[in-house]
């Protein structure tokens, strides 16, 4: 038996919105410690790794490990029926073929209950493991989203060049070029506005703009995004949850 109660439906809404355009369906792996997902997009360029730790929930129990195959478009439709501020409880029996979803209005005496049919998903997982990191950038997630959107008007690729004291986002396209430079900044009054760059080795990597457009759909999950870059390796883009994370691993583009 799995049962997890979110203090606010908005958190699961945001998680599903951040994932559903990248992967249509995925397995939710439920254990006593929480719920995790690994899913890869159809082109096998972008990997999503989600961890919702037990502490994220108002109440949580999972007596036995269970895997729930979920169509994210369908889940999104049902979750969309609840108000952001509702309590949201998901539950499933051990051999369930459906996921039970209950919204409780905190003011009105109103309870809405839905069942989502589960899917049998045969996922082949990738062994991501711990990765070395040459450069780490942490910046406001809204700023990163704007950089990605602004640069996408120029090119299908976004080049990220990190040196000791700056990160350069560069786009070179048919209509012209664009450069955005950000530098470390400590904002004591508004720590969420701070920018940090730590560097072991300079970085010059290019990523597909269309995949970055998918990644920045997670912007509402966290005020900050952490970007971990390693030479000749996938970039890791991490949005922290109250307890857990939503991470994207994006394979880079290379010169032909």
């Amino acid at each position: 038996m799995l049962e997890g109660k979110f203090e606010e439906a908005s958190l699961l809404k945001k998680i599903v919105e951040a994932m559903k355009d990248c992967v249509s369906s995925c397995n939710f792996n439920c254990t006593e410690n929480g719920i995790s997902v690994q899913a890869v997009d159809n082109s096998r360029v972008l990997l999503i790794s989600l961890l919702i730790e037990k502490d994220t929930f108002e109440e949580y129990r999972c007596d036995r490990n269970i895997t729930l195959g979920v169509g994210l478009g369908s889940l999104s439709k049902i979750i969309g029926n609840g108000a952001n501020s509702d309590y949201l409880t998901i539950s499933a029996d051990d051999d369930a073929d459906k996921l039970n979803i209950i919204f409780e209005d905190k003011v009105k005496d109103k309870i809405s209950e839905y069942n989502l049919k589960l899917l049998d998903i045969d996922a082949d997982l990738l062994d991501v493991g711990p990765m070395d990191t040459d450069a780490t950038i942490t910046l406001p997630s809204a700023d990163f989203a704007k950089i990605c959107k602004d640069m996408k008007v120029l090119s299908e690729s976004l080049q990220i060049i990190v040196t000791k004291d700056s990160a350069l986002f560069q786009s070179v396209g048919d209509i012209g070029t664009g450069n955005i430079v950000i530098r470390p900044k400590t904002d004591i009054d508004h720590p969420e506005e701070s920018v940090t760059i730590s560097l072991d080795k300079p970085i010059d990597l290019s990523f597909g703009s269309k995949y970055l457009s998918d990644i920045i759909k997670a912007t509402s999950l966290s005020q900050k995004v952490t970007i971990k870059l390693t030479d000749q390796s996938p970039g890791v883009f991490e949005y922290k949850l109250p307890s857990g994370y939503l991470r994207f691993y994006l394979a880079p583009k290379f010169d032909e």
């Binding site: 082109s43 360029v45 990738l126 062994d127 690729s157 996938p234 394979a251 583009k253 290379f254 010169d255």
Partner: peptide, 14 residues
């Protein structure tokens, strides 16, 4: 132009 790589080039299967 640049060529998109695949995650399978970096990560093995579990």
């Amino acid at each position: 132009s640049k060529k998109q790589s695949s995650l399978a080039q970096f990560f093995g299967k579990t």
